[in-house]
């Protein structure tokens, strides 16, 4: 069971939240100018990292605000949560993909 620190409400149980997937994907400035492959890249392709993952969460059954979290997708440890628009925090010792893990 995760205890998630909503930047607006403080620590709350995971059942109040929904995960919105990878964060910091910028919408293309001029979508009409993109090729089909570039649009698919924006719309569908994801890093799906093993290890540190920056992702969006929604406090669906609380304040209903979106925010971001830096979470490990192997241990599920949440290193930080931060408001939309803020710079993603640097997490020491985490490089995205955890190699040689047992799972």
């Amino acid at each position: 069971m995760l205890l998630i620190n909503c930047p607006w409400c403080g620590p709350r149980d995971e059942i109040e939240f929904n995960c919105g997937g990878e964060a910091h994907i910028a919408r293309p400035a001029d979508p009409a100018a993109l090729s089909d492959a570039e649009w698919a890249e924006y719309l569908f392709m994801r890093k799906n990292l093993k290890g540190l993952h920056y992702e969006r969460w929604h406090h669906s059954y609380g304040c209903r605000q979106w925010f971001n979290a830096a979470r490990d997708t192997v241990t599920h440890e949440i290193h930080a949560t931060y408001k939309m628009g803020e710079t993603p925090p640097v997490v020491a010792g985490a490089d995205g993909i955890v190699k040689g893990s047992s799972s």
Binding site: E14, K50, E55, H76, S101, S103
Partner: peptide
């Protein structure tokens, strides 16, 4: 509900 490689459920 969330992405994971942890092979355990919540």
């Amino acid at each position: 509900r969330f992405q994971s490689y942890g092979q355990r459920g919540s």
